[in-house]
Write a protein that binds this DNA or RNA. Structure first.
Lengths: 192, 192
DNA sequence: CGGTCTCTTGACGGAGTTCAAAGCTAGTGG
DNA sequence: CCACTAGCTTTGAACTCCGTCAAGAGACCG
């Protein structure tokens, strides 16, 4: 809870009273490895913040059954299907624990109420939304612009703390590359 | 201006007085074919709504000088670098008119003021943001999941009104495919 | 008409996939 | 403490999708 508040205070100011109110809106939840936070077709009822652990969001390729990774999220990240949560409509994604994960959650109704009681949070969540949007835009352009090897090394640079916690085949899927090819890239550059 | 207001009223309610206030915040602007709305390195000072015309947002591949299309936008769409506009920081994209384009614009300061005077608009712009975010997420997963041919036909289905107004090589770049390959796809399926 | 912009076509090559098998590694239970 | 399993990574060989280059064919516009 403290790291969440710290995260928020990096972007907006909250009074001590607001912080107390804030804390009461959230509940803790634990997912064991392999457990689902959300399944394709369900509505995302909670906004979830990761205290510790790793989650993956993906959808299933209907042709070959492969998982296509939308995002990988670790400690101090949000892991919510924003479209599904904000419109309370069915999600097309699955979100699943890669390892045991501790969350802080808030339901959709409570979320609205919280924003009314602590208006500064409107700004915080807008900032989060916009910065996520910026990374998505970059990812799209980047995907078209660079080759597998460059994408892979850029990922290593940008998300070193994810790399050390998830298997390579998930990173491969995130990047739209085959796991085997990442293996070959690594082999090629072992000297360095 | 009327189509913009119609667009907004599809998502939130505005009183007649609010609509009057709203109109006063916006100014008209015309871009000739080839003119830039924004250049890489500049800050995006205006939020821009397209009354009529076509814009492309892209960045330049430093290796071969190619344009990598981030988005193509036509009548009744927004065409703003949201990250750059909301943080008032330098943009990494270019936005340029594909044909003569009429815009409605509002500066960053005025935008903030407008939101204060017409609070319902907070909701409207959040909805726009979230739905754009949803399309970006889908585009990422889709790009990794499908082959060139499927991506191309999906684009034809999803954005028929863009297809009829921009050259094929821009659509190719948007999809991360070569223009030549799209030509081959079309040839292959000419019978249908 | 002549020039510019866009689309098409062909030949070739390369980046990356697929499939199957083998090698690792870490955890688990006996 | 060792053996076994399950999950992950590596490797090899064949294959394919798609990009690149270069040239030509339309199409549009002054």
């Amino acid at each position: 809870m403290e790291t969440l508040i710290k995260n928020i205070l990096q972007h907006v100011r909250l009074s001590p009273e607001e912080i107390v109110i804030f804390k009461n809106f959230w509940t803790e939840k634990t997912l064991e490895k392999g457990e689902f936070l959300l399944r394709n077709g369900e509505t995302c009822r909670y906004d979830s913040y990761i205290v510790s652990g790793v989650l993956k969001a993906f959808c299933i390729n209907s042709e070959n059954g492969n998982e296509e990774i939308l995002f990988l999220a670790i400690d101090d990240w949000w892991a919510t299907d924003i479209s599904s949560f904000s419109k309370q409509k069915a999600s097309i994604y699955n979100i699943q624990a890669v390892e045991k994960t501790n969350l802080l959650q808030i339901g959709h109704q409570s979320f609205q109420k919280m924003l009314q009681e602590i208006p500064s949070l409107e700004r915080y969540f807008r900032i989060i939304l916009e910065s996520y949007l910026g990374t998505l835009e970059k990812r799209i352009v980047f995907n078209n612009m660079y080759k597998a090897e460059q994408k892979y090394y850029d990922f290593l640079d940008t998300y070193p703390d994810i790399v050390s916690r998830v298997p390579q085949y998930l990173i491969a899927s995130y990047l739209g590359i085959s796991a085997e090819f990442i293996s070959r890239i690594r082999k090629k550059n072992k000297s360095s």
